[in-house]
Nucleic acid binder design. Sequence first.
DNA 1: CTCCAACCTGGAGTGCGCTCCAGGTCAAGG
DNA 2: CCTTGACCTGGAGCGCACTCCAGGTTGGAG
Lengths: 121, 121
Amino acid sequence: MTGYAPAEAARRSGFSLDTLRYYEKIGLLADVERTAGGQRVFTDDDLSWLVLFRCLRDTGMPIAQMRRYAQLAREGEHTVDERRELLRRHAEQVEEQMRLLQRQYDHLREKIRFYERLPGR
Amino acid sequence: MTGYAPAEAARRSGFSLDTLRYYEKIGLLADVERTAGGQRVFTDDDLSWLVLFRCLRDTGMPIAQMRRYAQLAREGEHTVDERRELLRRHAEQVEEQMRLLQRQYDHLREKIRFYERLPGR
DNA sequence: CTCCAACCTGGAGTGCGCTCCAGGTCAAGG
DNA sequence: CCTTGACCTGGAGCGCACTCCAGGTTGGAG
């Protein structure tokens, strides 16, 4: 009973309908169910994949790597080590990204303070 | 005496030579000096602009907006209010970006913990 | 003076991640 | 039934930020 129409899946995942179709086309999202007439029906499982993709995408993982992860997951339990390692390496890159962002943010705030201290304001 | 050859400016700024030429072409970097023969000579002032561009770019500012900022700075002192506001608005977006990144990073770490707690490991 | 690595220009090409389109099909409300 | 809005496909197009290229010039070391 948990089947979502395309528009509903788009709304819930925050991806556009075009993006959902694109993700299926490139093999990120596999085997999406269809009605007899060929229209997509998304399951809760598809939705939770989409939540994961959003997390990975928001943290800057390239689509090729997300595809690799999804591929491994489809291959079965013997790939759990590799999947965990893939996520760990990605997390390290995210940490680096956060440090850089913080550093540049601090730099930006300093620049703003320079403007705030300008005489005449 | 503080003039840098293109390769040196690239090394110091971390931008490629092609990127430096591109930034000049689109009007981010204006009036770069030249030798009699037409080769670029970068000043310390150019270099500090590049440091700023790196900061803004690393924090996700689109080039069009960096151009606007550079344009304002060239127009003179009467644009300081607008420049400060531009940077402030950008800083707010960076804060939002940092919150999202942190949130998704936490999500990612949870996923990794799930793998670490898997039986049999 | 000669050499050659570094530089120049205008313009084409690239990679990523979508986004849009034309021309049709499906399915639920009235 | 009929309508109409949501959906389908394959493929082209887009926006961004570079990156590369061909074909020619420059300038410092030897």
